[in-house]
Design a protein around this nucleic acid. Structure first.
Length: 296
DNA sequence: GAACGCACCTGTGCGC
DNA sequence: TGCGCACAGGTGCGTT
């Protein structure tokens, strides 16, 4: 479920293995994911040292020592796993069963490193993910990043900013928050969770959180803090699940979270003293989960 | 411009 | 057990 917190967790999980390592070989098992892989992708990465792993929204960025940056998006079903080379054994890796989805291993980074050579394997059954190549200098003009909104963690995101984006917008809050141009990195799950925490209905028009003079109403302040908190909590949860995953099979990308409303249709609302049940509605083709009683 | 619908592709879970 | 169907976390394009 790669939304921003999952991608951040993947980044943290891969960093110790990938940063500083040299890409001995890039193995491409097919010519495309969602889009064709870049021309000469394997040749351009071979022999390069990985300088740093970073993240922008739901994109993983791999900086190389020649100024190039690999952009990786996990789509809906992408994950990475780390396998040790001949010279080493992953913690807990002894006799661990091969992934049953090995046929969906599409891109394999063969690394030279201090541990004797790990493999970092990108697996993606649905192939909604993609990889591209640009340069660090051109990241800001990369099409997917050009119009991206601020990150939901950090100082860029404020109630004032959201008020400026929501003013005059009749679009439902759910759709407005999913728009990556408004906030970068929020997905279906965390939008549902943030709206539940804020007691706001996903169907409410975005403009109703803004005063006639363009100032954020109190509820927008609450929503802003809820967005920050729900993402921060998920990153913290990813950090704890990270340890478990690395100890078991090295797979990064899927974590067991427990959500307050997401995927809880028909269950009782977890807001204290609320007698409502979680409902599921469809907005813009996506499921929204919310409690009609306490979310207005 | 805004708001949908749909396509991309495979796996899973459900009802029958 | 097996089949068919609905649905799934994202993004981007086309249509109205």
């Amino acid at each position: 479920m790669p939304e921003l917190p999952e991608v951040e967790t993947v980044r943290r999980g891969l960093s110790p293995t990938m940063e500083g390592a040299v890409i001995r070989q890039l193995e491409l098992r097919r010519p495309d994911l969602r889009f064709p892989l870049p021309r000469e992708f394997a040749a351009r990465l071979q022999g390069r040292r990985i300088i740093a792993l970073s993240r922008r929204a739901k994109y993983l960025l791999i900086d190389l020592d020649d100024g190039a940056t690999v952009i990786a998006h996990l789509g809906m079903s992408g994950s990475f796993r780390i396998e040790a080379g001949e010279a080493g054994v992953m913690p807990g890796d002894f006799h661990h069963p091969r992934s049953k989805n090995e046929k969906h291993d599409h891109v394999i980074f063969h690394l030279d490193g201090a541990d004797g050579g790990s493999r970092v394997i990108y697996n993606d059954p649905r192939r909604f993910g993609f990889m591209d190549l640009t340069t660090r200098n051109e990241l800001d003009i990369y099409p997917a990043f050009r119009d991206l909104g601020p990150e939901p963690v950090g100082n860029e995101l404020s109630a004032d900013y959201l008020a400026s984006r929501f003013a005059g917008k009749q679009q439902p809050l759910k759709s407005a928050l999913l728009d990556q141009k408004v906030i970068a990195g929020l997905g279906n799950i965390y939008v549902c969770e943030a709206l539940w925490r804020s007691h706001l209905s996903p169907e409410r028009a975005a403009a109703t959180l803004v005063t006639p003079t363009g100032r954020p109403k109190q509820q927008l302040l609450v929503l802003t803090e809820a967005i920050r908190a729900v993402i921060a909590d998920a990153i913290a949860a990813g950090g704890s699940s990270l340890r478990d995953h690395i100890q078991t099979d090295g797979t990064l990308g899927y974590f067991q979270h427990s959500f307050s409303v997401y995927d809880r249709e028909g269950s009782s609302c977890r807001t204290p003293d609320c007698s409502g049940n979680v409902e599921r509605i469809t907005q813009a083709g996506r499921s929204s989960f919310y409690c009609r009683i306490c979310q207005k």
